[in-house]
Design a protein around this nucleic acid. Structure first.
Lengths: 147, 147
DNA sequence: ATAAATGCAAACGCTTTGCAGTAAC
DNA sequence: GTTACTGCAAAGCGTTTGCATTTAT
């Protein structure tokens, strides 16, 4: 989603467009991957000296509830990114180093047989690894872990 | 995994087999689904009066590191279950009410095209919903949310 | 006997909340 | 001018850690 669209949606929802929210909208519009609350706080902190974590959290929550952001649980905790506006339901490749995501058109639900008695509510399909730009980091991580 | 096997693996790893760990092994061997640390604490608390959360956490961590438990991040937080010993890699249907899991033989990775440049490390495929015994809860949840 | 496991209490990190001042509408 | 947003401080929750005691080996 574009900065303008995020802001428009927030404004239409009756939210006030503060400087912080403009910066937040731009941050997520420009960011190709998932951001943790701390990532967001660090980025925002460059522009707002008195910035506090609770405001970051409040805005992330508001934007998540409004649907302009989507929230995903990683092992390291919650992360956010701008909601995908593509009409087509899809999943993602997610880079463990830079957080960048790449769409996967295939949805496994189309070919998964679910027993009739089981009432499906939602599903999760995510592929984690290292993208082109970060394959160097893959070896570093392998060397570092479990040494 | 069976209680005996969990205990055997822990013993072979040089861990001491305390009463609590026996109970823990049996709990996970008998439990068909994921358990939160609190679930575990509540269950254990019935048998051990002075039980403390930190011991529960310590044992969950030890057992996870040993590989007799597997740990999954849910939106509500971390949960554990006995590691699946089946040779075949598989995924799960997970009941949102009782936490029970059912194996899915299909793995979407077999039919997902990944760009050559992307180095896959791991993947996640989980289907959430309500199982046969809990479909009644599905309506209750729907009525309760977003009202 | 020795070293690991436990319980307690306290600390920790992440997230939320109450309140008074500030800013968008 | 009204009401929402913000920063501050403090509380909340889930989880981890240090230390003395207990227990499996």
């Amino acid at each position: 989603m574009q900065t303008d669209e995020i802001i428009r949606l927030m404004s239409e929802a009756g939210l006030r467009i503060t400087d912080q929210r403009k910066t937040l909208a731009k941050l997520f519009a420009d960011s190709p991957g998932y951001l943790s609350p701390k990532d967001v706080y660090d980025h925002m902190g460059r522009y707002y000296t008195g910035l506090s974590f609770d405001t970051v959290y409040r805005n992330l929550r508001v934007m998540d509830e409004l649907g302009v952001l989507e929230q995903v649980m990683f092992e390291e905790g919650v992360k956010f990114k701008a909601h995908c506006r593509e009409a087509h339901h899809h999943h993602h490749l997610i880079c463990l180093h830079c957080g960048k995501t790449y769409p996967l058109t295939l949805c496994p639900m189309d070919m998964t047989e679910i027993p009739e008695e089981f009432k499906v509510v939602k599903h999760k399909f995510e592929v984690f690894g290292y993208c082109k730009d970060c394959t160097g980091e893959a070896e570093a991580a392998a060397a570092g872990s479990d040494g």
